[in-house]
């Protein structure tokens, strides 16, 4: 199926992109739909990008639903282990 939905948000950080170069990322897009590369019918697709630098300024992830849940849990665990004053 094509879900058509895209969840978007603004972010601040860096990601290592094509050619091994780092880019500052400002935009987040998450959607559950067909992957381009992953061997699964549907995946959680995550794009971290800097639209001001064009469509190729993007770091992409395609994760199975279970893998995406593990990523979310790992991020939550890492954040929970950090002193709260550092994560505001």
């Amino acid at each position: 199926m094509c879900t058509y939905l895209t969840v978007k948000d603004e972010i601040d950080g860096s990601a290592k992109g094509a050619g091994g170069s780092w880019l500052r990322v400002s935009d987040l897009a998450v959607y559950f739909d067909h992957p381009v590369h992953a061997m699964a019918e549907h995946t959680v697709n995550i794009d971290l990008s800097d639209p001001s630098k064009g469509p190729s300024a993007r770091v992409a992830l395609e994760l199975t639903a279970e893998s995406a849940r593990r990523l979310v849990a790992a991020i939550q665990e890492a954040l929970a282990a950090a002193p709260p004053e550092l994560t505001v």
């Binding site: 897009a29 959607y31 064009g54 469509p55 992409a60």
Partner: peptide, 17 residues
């Protein structure tokens, strides 16, 4: 229009966004 010359997957992501 949105992504001339971009790789197809990058263009698709840009248009989707």
């Amino acid at each position: 229009r949105e992504a001339p010359g971009a790789a197809p997957d990058d263009a698709a992501a840009a248009v989707r966004a």
